[in-house]
Amino acid sequence: MRVKPYNKAFMVIHGTLLSLVLLTVYGFYSFDYKDVNFVEASIQTLQNVKMMFIEPHFSHFTFQEALYQVAITLGLAFLTTVFGAAIALFLGIFAAQNLTNKAVSAVIKGVVAFIRSVPTVLWVLIFAVAAGLGSVAAVIGMTFHSVGYLIKAYSEAFEEVDKGMIDALKASGAGWWQIIFQAVLPSTATYLVSWTFLRFEINFAVAVAMGAAAGAGGIGFEMFMASGFYYDIQEVGMITYFILIFAILLELVATRVKKNLKTAEV
């Protein structure tokens, strides 16, 4: 006895799954294996991983230098987040439908959706055309994407603000800027801070990648040199640990700040 009917949805799902299976099989069959022995290759990869993570060392720079490079990467993330937050706060107010007219909001939101749909790396490369590969292009490109991301986050936070509260201040004769600063921003402060922190974490990860991809300097660039230039897998491992530790530290600080903001609420 059949429980599921042979309808269109059933056919589509099963057809998709079947074609995926066939494509996978064909893919493995058509790979160019270059006479690599699977077992041998696996063992060598594991050896590399072991060297990377069990025997990490510094050879081309010292611990202090590594700290300094991480600080540069953090600086890049911090700078772009601060720039992004400042611009986004201003534009986010104009993008919130309940605070401005529909046309202004729609224009800003449309542009912002476009900015966000292009990845950060691409923006950096686009700005590299004018500024040349390096830290300037990285700062502009990362700021650009941060602005796009934060405008969306901020404006949505502003739109959640209780309409009655705005009405009450309007009815007492308060002006638009007064309402923004006295009611809208205080009511949304926790959201704004937590979105900004989230973006800072994203920007840290992007800044590592930008160091390598756009030559923006910092720990990412050292990692690129260690792997692509010196083939020093052990140093790559060390740098990975460095980045990991700093990412965890960032996460801890962010959690602590958010917690403090929350307890201040009660």
């Binding site: 209780d162 509260m165 009450a168 007492s172 308060a174 007064q178 006295q182 009611a183 609420e265």
Partner: peptide, 22 residues
């Protein structure tokens, strides 16, 4: 329709906003 995250006295003073410069 109060600004719930602000203190009582801040909310009361909001009534003066209409008389103040921006």
């Amino acid at each position: 329709n109060l600004v719930t995250r602000l203190t009582v006295i801040e909310n009361v003073l909001h009534g003066r906003l209409g008389y103040k410069s921006a």
